[in-house]
């Protein structure tokens, strides 16, 4: 039987060195609280990160950890997972690490459905290098590297994941402690690659960037907590919902005008990514920001595929015999 762990068991003795008030702290807490609930021996967890504030994460986990190089964590994690399928492999990355320098690896890790969990801490800025525009920084935003306004259009992380054929995408936020834990758990249980965008406040260089979504006072009207199989209701008084209108578009409706039966029912397993894309795309003020698991479909994992092809190959191939292999082909003997 696996030992019953507590949060403390997952905390390393390294002093945590993020800025006071950084959203990373609560993500660390959520992870440390979730892992004990999974019933997995501690040594089976591996945290792999790239470069950035978020990528210091593995140092603070009392598990196996590898702080690697900028953008490449998904590629390294792929190697780890193929070499040892028994491990539970988690990639910790940020918006710069994953979507700028590491964009290619995110695409391929997801399209291959490598059975790893990618947590992208999205703070819409470069924190570690002190405040430059990132791939998710708003258009026109003034940052250290864009003093006259960011000329580049931002990319939305979940769009990238969907476009990469991810089998599991979800969104949560540093301030939604319980929600975060629920999403992390679902990611763990998903058989295949998972991609979770975690909205994270960079207290120093982009403070309050998610205020219009996550501020306590307005939050309930600005986010929708999606639940599989449930109609899409939201709002402080649960008085609003989402439906598909005659044009095939998502529409926020009042439950005074519509009944719950008119609303869209969330289906994470819907093979058609169209609705998932629309949900991921929603932004306040017109729409609530979608939180929770948006898509979770079943596809063979990369590991399963590799093992399957190796098995099929081995069945057809001769029994491995190094000596025979060396002496194969056209040989000749000199007496």
């Amino acid at each position: 039987m696996t030992k019953q762990y507590t949060k403390k068991d997952f905390a390393s003795d390294n002093e945590v060195r993020w800025c006071p008030g950084c959203g990373d702290y609560s993500i660390l807490t959520a992870v440390q609280k979730t892992l004990p609930e999974l019933g997995v021996p501690k040594e089976k967890f591996v945290f792999i990160s790239g470069i950035g504030c978020s990528s210091r994460f593995p140092y603070y986990m009392n598990t196996y950890g590898f702080h690697t190089i900028h953008g490449r964590a998904p590629a390294i994690a792929t190697g780890v997972k193929i070499a040892n399928p028994d491990l539970s492999v988690w990639v910790i990355t940020g918006d710069g690490d994953a979507l700028s320098i590491g964009g290619n690896h995110i695409l391929h890790a997801l399209r291959r459905n490598v059975d790893i969990n990618i947590l992208l801490f999205n703070n819409e800025i470069y924190g570690l290098t002190k405040g430059q525009a990132s791939p998710t920084t708003h258009y026109g935003q003034k940052t250290k590297s864009t003093p006259s306004g960011n000329p580049s259009r931002p990319v939305r992380p979940l769009h990238v994941a969907l476009g990469s054929e991810a089998t599991f995408i979800a969104r949560t936020a540093d301030v939604l402690m319980k929600h975060m834990q629920g999403v992390l758990k679902e990611a763990y249980y998903h058989n295949g690659g998972t991609f979770i965008e975690i909205l994270q406040n960079c207290h120093i260089f982009n403070d309050g960037v998610f205020k219009n979504i996550l501020d306590k006072k307005i939050r309930d009207d600005r986010i929708i907590l999606l639940e599989d199989g449930k109609p899409m209701v939201f709002g402080a008084n649960s008085d609003k919902g989402l439906r598909i209108n005659a044009l095939g578009k998502l529409e926020v409706v009042s439950l005074e005008e519509y009944s719950v039966d008119d609303l869209l029912v969330h289906d994470v397993k819907n093979p058609d990514p169209g609705i998932h894309f629309m949900l991921a795309d929603m932004e306040p003020p017109e729409y609530p920001e979608a939180m929770g698991v948006i898509r979770a479909v079943k596809e063979p994992t990369f590991g399963e595929q590799i093992r399957h092809t190796m098995k099929v190959h081995a069945e057809q191939a001769a029994t491995p015999n190094l000596e025979k292999l060396l002496y194969s082909g056209e040989t000749w003997t000199v007496e």
Binding site: T78, I82, H105
Partner: peptide, 26 residues
């Protein structure tokens, strides 16, 4: 591959070495 060789055609040269490093680490 029946000799215990895992072969991974990566998305680029960087991923190729990174995956090999990951495998060595494992």
């Amino acid at each position: 591959t029946e000799y215990g060789i895992s072969v991974f055609q990566a998305e680029d040269e960087i991923a190729a070495i990174c995956a090999a490093i990951g495998a060595s680490y494992a």
